[in-house]
């Protein structure tokens, strides 16, 4: 029994870690928790590979002198594979997190169920004031000539409207290329344009005036 455990315990523990990671990915409602579960899962796979490279009586694959007997060193191939996999895993996490930030800007939440309902159009898209305001540089870099388009875009930021509206506002934001750049004088175009593109499901909750007030309140260096 002890011998069996000694020979097999790696598989046991790796399986437990895999199960935990899978549970996080599948069962957690919060998207950040899902990414954490993904990281746990992939690290468990790294451990599985690295433990598989182990050899009795072998050491790190750095050749000492000219002793090139392969039985002296552990298998370097899994090391290489996992080395690159770790780096790629971080790239995956980076992309996942940026998508999360984007989702949060559009929906104001990271609850998967709420976002899914909203995209499917089963929930009233009108939501309380967005926890996110367009930064002041958005207005500073404003372009007066693009009032309508950028207005539509910040409408997509402020609210996710209708069944097609969520896609709508988002799509216009992407194709617009200039996000939330409504300048002071195009504030009128704000609500109007978002109503038009969003299928008429509720207006942008705060115009550019409201954004500005919030930014003033935060002020510079408002690090908590």
């Amino acid at each position: 029994m002890i011998e069996l455990f000694l020979a097999r315990y790696v598989y046991l523990f790796v399986l437990m870690l895999l199960a935990i990671g899978l549970y996080g990915v599948l069962a957690k409602g919060d998207l950040v928790k899902k990414v954490i579960g993904l990281t746990i899962f992939s690290t468990a796979i790294y451990i599985f590979f690295i433990e598989g490279s182990l050899q009795e009586g072998a050491t790190a694959p750095v050749i000492e002198g000219d002793q090139t007997d392969p039985s002296l060193y552990v298998d370097p191939l899994p090391h290489l594979l996992i080395l690159t996999a770790i780096v790629v895993g971080v790239g995956v996490v980076g992309v996942a997190l940026s998508l999360l930030v984007r989702l949060y800007r559009a929906h104001g939440t990271l609850d998967e169920a709420v976002i899914a309902r909203r995209i499917a159009g089963r929930e009233d898209p009108a939501r309380p004031a967005s926890p996110h305001d367009d930064g002041p540089e958005g207005e500073q870099r404003g372009r007066g000539s693009d009032g309508g388009r950028s207005g539509a875009d910040s409408g997509g930021h402020e609210e996710a409207s209708g069944d097609s509206g969520a896609g709508h506002g988002q799509a216009s934001g992407d194709s617009g290329g200039g996000h939330g750049q409504a300048s002071g004088d195009s504030g009128g175009g704000h609500g109007q344009a978002s109503g038009g593109s969003g299928g008429g499901h509720g207006q942008a909750s705060g115009g550019s005036d409201g954004d500005r007030d919030d930014d003033d309140r935060d002020g510079p260096g408002g690090r908590a």
Binding site: V32, V35, I36, T39, T43, Y46, I50, E51, S53, L54, A58, T59, A60, P61, V62, V74, P78, H79, I82, L83, I86, V87, V90, V93, G94, L97, S98, L100, V101, Y104, L110
Partner: peptide, 29 residues
């Protein structure tokens, strides 16, 4: 288990940079 290269990368990336990226995303959401 003598996987020194992997340990180095995992310590720098997994324990370091990944945490920073997560925290940046959490502060933004």
């Amino acid at each position: 288990v003598s996987a020194v290269d992997v340990a180095l990368v995992e310590a720098a990336l997994g324990a370091g940079v990944t945490g920073v990226l997560f925290i940046a995303a959490i502060l933004a959401t």
